[in-house]
Write a protein that binds this DNA or RNA. Structure first.
Lengths: 273, 273
DNA sequence: GATAATTGTTCCATTATTTGGAACTTGATT
DNA sequence: AATCAAGTTCCAAATAATGGAACAATTATC
């Protein structure tokens, strides 16, 4: 009850530190993980703003837990434990499991890259991907987070939100102009979201990355309050807007199918009112 | 200094709790992540052995940090933050980066699956994989950990360790008989490790999984104290021991090349003594 | 080669957080 | 209604985290 109320606070003091010790530890972990190379103590000191003594203990604990590794030259790198935890949580993700055959089918139909993404706060996190003949890797983007307001899946997922939730997300969104076509403000985005609600699908017209277009559809799971979506993405030179429009119907169909199966397999979470 | 000394304690009281608050939080996280489905409060209570009040706060914090998600029916699932953290740490892994083209080349040569693994404690963690025509996924095993003593890469990596380190690892190893060919004790394993040191490569003769064989070579990075290896793996019906022996040379060569490049690119970690 | 500057590590009294038992809701079951 | 189980809240005591400052160990500078 007290946690939910945070959103109602008139002005949070710079995102609040959050969860005491754990929050700080994860913040430090993230600081190291998001950095380019190995980070020396002083680098992290600057990034994290923690006092020396505190940071030192925090890092020691993270190393002890295997979340970080300390090299011989004393610099810190991400540890392998993170990979192991992620592997388990990914391969056990029931939602991804349900969606996968549908993604594959869409890929067979279109020949282009197909994504599954889930909304987290103001971002879309890519959870699965099916791609053309390309060597198997953790795949370019699984786990990657992109802003919701300028991606196909993101806008599709936003269209599922209720008025209050949507407002809350938009209030926290920073409209960064990635390309010439990126939404500059909530106003135009809201108008497009209306369209998306009507059509049942969303386009990304080179809004996040130049020369990249996609068509996406929202996946709604009645009873569960997850907001997700799937998309078919391709380079502008190969994928015209006409082509994308033609794919909209199968994408919508796949999204609906996933939603339906998910309800059955995941079970509605102690249903509605 | 005090941490290093832990290994010297005559008998650790069941692995010790470790790093205070953080350790407990991660333990709870792991309990949820390694479970099959969503876990209810009571399930986790039993698994973790924490008192109710403590566990409740721990879970709240993990949810607040995005490491867990609480569903409508109050059960807990792994959150997306873990995936994002892992994505960043994987894609930024400089070692993997160096190794990748070599893995690919080995795959082209053999047509079989190629793995890159790193030793962590008594286990091998798979960090990259190149596989035959198969749809792109996080790939069956990236992040997976297998016992070192019964896998090709594992034994190869163990052969790099000094006497004391090796003893320490073996003391912590539990010899589980996965197949008819699995090592039953440290004695036979040590003998094989001698051979591996002499030959420069290791075989897995269906020791971990029946019908699966591989040939592996250790990657040593002078100056850095990482123990890793690569392997070529295939089903027994297709890959004979003769075939594996023929691949041993190129596997060794690739491993050496990776080691050399790694020294250059990663920089030796503040050299030797 | 001596001195200064930087970086990493340790210490410890103060402070804030965690702890964990028990009481309390809430919702289902008999 | 009464019983049972699951989840949540409370609070004094115990513990762990805090962070400033002193201390090493390196590396840079003169």
């Amino acid at each position: 009850m007290s946690n939910e109320a945070i959103g109602a606070m008139d002005e949070a003091p710079a995102e609040a530190s959050g969860t005491g010790t754990l929050g700080k530890a994860i913040a430090v972990l993230e600081a190291v993980v998001t950095a380019d190379g190995p980070q020396r103590f002083t680098d992290i000191l600057a990034r994290s703003g923690q006092p020396r003594g505190t940071l030192y203990r925090l890092l020691s604990h993270l190393v002890e837990e295997g979340l970080l590794i300390q090299r011989r030259d004393l610099s810190y790198e991400p540890g392998l434990r993170l990979l192991t935890l992620a592997y388990r949580s990914w391969s056990a993700n029931r939602f991804r499991d349900v969606a996968e055959p549908h993604l594959r089918r869409l890929h067979d139909l279109t020949g282009e890259t197909v994504h599954l993404g889930i909304l987290r706060q103001t971002e879309i996190v890519y959870v699965d991907k099916v791609e053309s003949r390309q060597t198997v890797r953790m795949s370019s983007q699984i786990g990657k987070a992109s802003p919701a307001y300028c991606t196909g899946i993101g806008k599709a997922a936003l269209s599922l939100l209720g008025h209050a939730e949507l407002e809350h997300v938009l209030a926290r969104t920073e409209f960064h102009p990635f390309t010439a076509h990126t939404h500059r403000s909530a106003a135009t985005l809201l108008a497009e979201i209306e369209e998306i609600r009507r059509d049942g699908h969303a386009f990304d017209r080179e809004e996040h990355e130049a020369e990249i277009r996609c068509v996406a559809a929202p996946i709604s799971i009645p009873g569960d309050d997850i907001a997700a979506g799937i998309s078919v993405t391709g380079p502008a030179y190969r994928v015209t807007m006409e082509q994308l429009s033609a794919w909209a119907a199968p994408v919508r169909a796949a999204a609906q199918a996933i939603g339906k199966e998910a309800v059955i397999r995941l079970g509605p979470g102690r249903g509605g009112p």
